[in-house]
Write a protein that binds this DNA or RNA. Structure first.
Lengths: 91, 91
DNA sequence: CTTTATGCGTAAGCCAGAACTCGCTGCGGC
DNA sequence: GCCGCAGCGAGTTCTGGCTTACGCATAAAG
């Protein structure tokens, strides 16, 4: 499933125009992105939470040359499924 | 950040009432939950993708008693950040 | 609304360390 | 007041990181 399909589903379920639904979807993505980029977690109860995770520097390897590769520390976003979501997929 | 706050932010940015924003938020969560529970991936370009992941059975351990614990196979939801999201948090 | 053009996302292959998983309980958010 | 989330410990699974090419999505225009 991709963006337009989700937007369409939202439009139907929430009684919105598809344009509005698409706009809202983009706004949400933007808002969440902005929030986590500030280092704040986003928790949607019943769904899950987005957490900013510090990734320690380590030594990797270039898959093509096989040479050791220095990978600096970085940040990433981790998602932890909530109970409802876990139950839903486990079914 | 939690649900009501996100709803408020959406309401402001997308020119919606807070009630409507909250409703839309729930619908989205519900829709995504339903979709992944069917085994379909959800891809929001520029944000990331939700993937259903099969988890093999293995032998774990109860942290409190230290006794071996039999963990059966199950499914879970994995989130993979997209480029825009990674760029945003890395900043 | 459909098409076009551009720009991302996905996939694969390899390897090392890192993150996630589990049950249970307290505590805090709802 | 109640449900959901965080945290612990150890092992295993899994992702990240690079690069190329292809396919599809996105956004804008007719």
């Amino acid at each position: 499933m991709r963006k337009p399909e989700l937007a369409a589903a939202i439009a139907e379920r929430a009684d919105l125009s598809k344009d509005k639904a698409s706009q809202v979807l983009n706004v949400i993505i933007d808002e969440i992105t902005e929030t986590v980029s500030k280092g704040n977690d986003v928790t949607l109860i019943g769904f899950g939470s987005f957490t900013v995770r510090e990734r320690a520097a380590r030594t990797g390897k270039n898959p093509q040359t096989g040479k050791p590769l220095d990978i600096p520390a970085s940040k990433t976003v981790a998602f932890k499924p909530g109970k409802a979501l876990k139950d839903a997929v486990s079914k």
